[in-house]
């Protein structure tokens, strides 16, 4: 169910001029990067959003009316009232950093590692920010829109170990 008015009022108390929108029953709020940690803490501790459903990212390169290069998406849910809220944070290409949510939700650990792996967003304060799905030697961020579907030949350059050498 969409976020209640009380939740939105509580958010507005910390964020003057809060931008919210609703689409097909989803409540979305745009949060500036500086206030993200504060807003997440407020929602968890005072509004009961105890479940971090997902952390993901969208690369808005060439997207119509794009606000900035990357948009991080935090999906939160309240497991008692079933309220849901979507937070969106925009970050630029030159400084893709954002505070980590791991101090609040342990579940953010792997979700943020995946976003780092695929988009190169750096989560400040993350305990273990390494690549997770791709090999450590990989240098590109494949879910960025400027990365081609068929790759840049990384697979052909993987080191080959033969049985007799291994």
């Amino acid at each position: 169910m969409p976020a209640t008015n009380e939740t939105l009022t509580a958010l507005e108390a910390v964020l003057q001029g809060l931008e919210t929108s609703e689409f097909r029953g989803d409540t979305r709020a745009t949060v500036p990067r500086e206030s993200l940690a504060e807003v997440l803490r407020l929602l968890r501790d005072r509004r009961g959003f105890d479940l971090l459903v997902d952390v993901t990212c969208v690369d808005y390169l060439n997207y119509r009316d794009a606000r900035d290069r990357f948009g991080l998406v935090y999906l939160l849910a309240n497991t008692t009232t079933n309220e849901r809220i979507t937070l969106r944070v925009y970050v630029g290409e030159s400084d893709p950093t954002i505070p980590s949510a791991v101090p609040l939700w342990e579940g953010a650990n792997w979700l943020e590692r995946e976003v780092y792996d695929m988009f190169g967003i750096v989560f400040e304060g993350h305990p273990d920010l390494r690549r997770i799905l791709l090999p450590d030697e990989f240098t590109a961020f494949p879910l960025r829109k400027d990365y081609p579907l068929q790759g840049r030949g990384e697979r052909h350059n993987f080191p080959v170990l033969r049985r007799e050498e291994g």
Binding site: D50, L51, T79, N82, W105, E106, G107, L111
Partner: peptide, 17 residues
Amino acid sequence: NGRSCTGPIARASGVTR
């Protein structure tokens, strides 16, 4: 809840969602 578990795994721990 803190580790974002859902489904049978969360329900086996007392989450009713």
